[in-house]
């Protein structure tokens, strides 16, 4: 065992010899590096013209995938959005298209 035991950035290019024993993780706050966006089968899409920046969607997202900056929501964080559709359901202005003709 070498110092890859300390490795902080484990990727699927690592051979078995390089992985930490038992999959130990030597870092904290790193779930952001796990691209759960891979799991998504339906993708929410913004219709910016309709968005009133009411910000009802952002706190409802269970994956914190609607970033908000300076009082305005930004584009989806597609690396982590799992595609649950909750945001589209709560948007009162139909500014989020989820599935349908878009897919």
């Amino acid at each position: 065992m070498t110092d890859q035991n300390k490795m902080k950035n484990i990727t699927i290019d690592n051979k078995w010899q390089d992985l930490t024993p038992g999959g130990m993780i030597f870092a904290s706050g790193n779930s952001v590096e796990f691209r759960t966006g891979d799991w998504r089968t339906i993708t929410p899409k913004m219709v910016w013209d309709k968005c009133k920046q009411c910000l009802l969607c952002a706190p409802m997202c269970p994956d914190s995938s609607i970033p908000v900056k300076d009082g305005k929501r930004l584009e989806f964080d597609y690396d982590h959005c799992k595609g649950c559709g909750i945001c589209a359901k709560v948007c009162p202005f139909d500014a989020i298209v989820f599935g349908g003709e878009e897919e």
Partner: peptide
């Protein structure tokens, strides 16, 4: 990763 961990 599971297979690589099992191999180890």
């Amino acid at each position: 990763y599971y297979m690589e961990h099992k191999k180890a």
